[in-house]
Each structure stands twice: as structure tokens, then as C-alpha cells.
Design a binder for these strands. Structure first.
Lengths: 91, 91
DNA sequence: TATATAATTAGATATATATCTAAATATCTA
DNA sequence: TAGATATTTAGATATATATCTAATTATATA
């Protein structure tokens, strides 16, 4: 997974909000939609981008698709930034 | 400064490379250009975006503009991600 | 099995972004 | 001060992205 793809996924406010919502626990598309001011197809598009960036996962539960947060990529990003910043201290 | 603007600035590969180059020390536009496969105006555009995101600073030195890395915003990003991830441990 | 509900996919459109060439600006130097 | 060098700004263009409506797919249920 490229850092660019991750940062790109993280750069959109609606997607940040989705991650914030999922932080508290998994949610269906419909439930997420209640907190965002976009149509369902637009929401679906944002979920797709987050999923391709491996920031979230999904599973079907009856008629609903339940999305949940993946922490690992964000942990990697934090680690990479920390490693990047580490040079500062070396100097 | 919005997180979106920061992530957006960080999402482009050439800009990531610029930050990487500046990590080792300040450089002129011309020097940075040696490592990137873009024209000078394009490079100037990327520098402008990084500067607007407060990720780099510049000063004039004779005919050259010298760019240097700002660590603070990246430190903030790392901190925000860490804080975001902290909920995981709480639960 | 027809209808309702949940979500995605398709297709269109408007805005943003990355890129280039050409022109402008700033500084240095012969 | 004329010409060279360094960088930015202006303007054009092609690609990417966010958004919508309409259509499709998947599941549940009366």
C-alpha cells in the first residue's frame, strides 16, 4: 500500500468523519449516512476509497453492509512519520 | 491549518520526495529539481503547495530561493493520529 | 413471488489538480 | 546597464475527483 494512496484517502473531510465515526464501533452505510451531508452513492464512493486504502473493512449482515475501522494502516502511517521525524534528533 | 490540507499536500509523490530531500538539509529550487523529473514551474507549484501547508519554509539567498523543512506540522499530524489511535487501547 | 429496503454501479458533470510552454520578475555580474 | 541565471506567475490542457440522478443488485418479508 502506497503512502500516497493513504494520504489521499485521508485528505477528504467526509472520509475523515467516517473514520471518526467508526472509531467508536462498526456501523452500517445507512447509519454512517445520518452524520454526513451526501447522497448514498457519494457515501458509497467514499467508503470504496477508504476500503481500497485498507483503512476500513466491510461485511454483509442481511441487507446491510457493516463497515469497521482498520487500525493497522494508521499505525503504520504514524510510525513512518515518527521515523521520518527521527532524523531531526540525530542531527 | 486543516488536516485535510496537510494530507492533501502529503499525498503527491513528488512532494513526498521533496520533503525527503529537505530532511537532510535545506536546498535551492534548482538543487531539488535535480532529483525530480518535472519542469521548474511544476516544481515551483509543488513547493507552493507544501509552503501553503506550512510543511516547508523559504528564504531568498541572492538569486536563489532556499527551502527548508518545517517539522512542526508533521509532529502535529503524528500526534493527532496517535491520539486517534489511542481510543483503541481504551476499549 | 412481488415489494420494500440497503447498498453499489453506471453515467454525467463540475471542480480541482498536475503538468507543460511562454512570459514576467528578481538578482547577479561583466 | 545589458545579459545571464534563478525562480515564479500566467495561461492552457489533460486527468482525477467529488458529486448527483437513475439503474442495478442483493436481501428480507408480506
Amino acid at each position: 500500500m502506497s503512502l500516497s494512496k493513504t494520504f489521499s484517502a485521508l485528505s477528504e473531510p467526509n472520509r475523515q468523519k467516517i473514520l471518526d465515526l467508526l472509531k467508536k464501533g462498526e456501523l452500517s452505510v445507512n447509519e454512517i449516512g445520518k452524520y454526513l451531508d451526501v447522497t448514498t452513492p457519494t457515501l458509497s464512493h467514499h467508503l470504496d476509497i477508504l476500503k481500497r486504502a485498507d483503512l476500513i473493512s466491510s461485511r454483509r449482515q442481511g441487507q446491510q453492509i457493516i463497515y469497521s475501522l482498520n487500525f493497522s494502516i494508521l499505525e503504520e502511517v504514524a510510525e513512518k512519520i515518527a521515523k521520518f521525524l527521527a532524523v531531526k534528533k540525530i542531527k
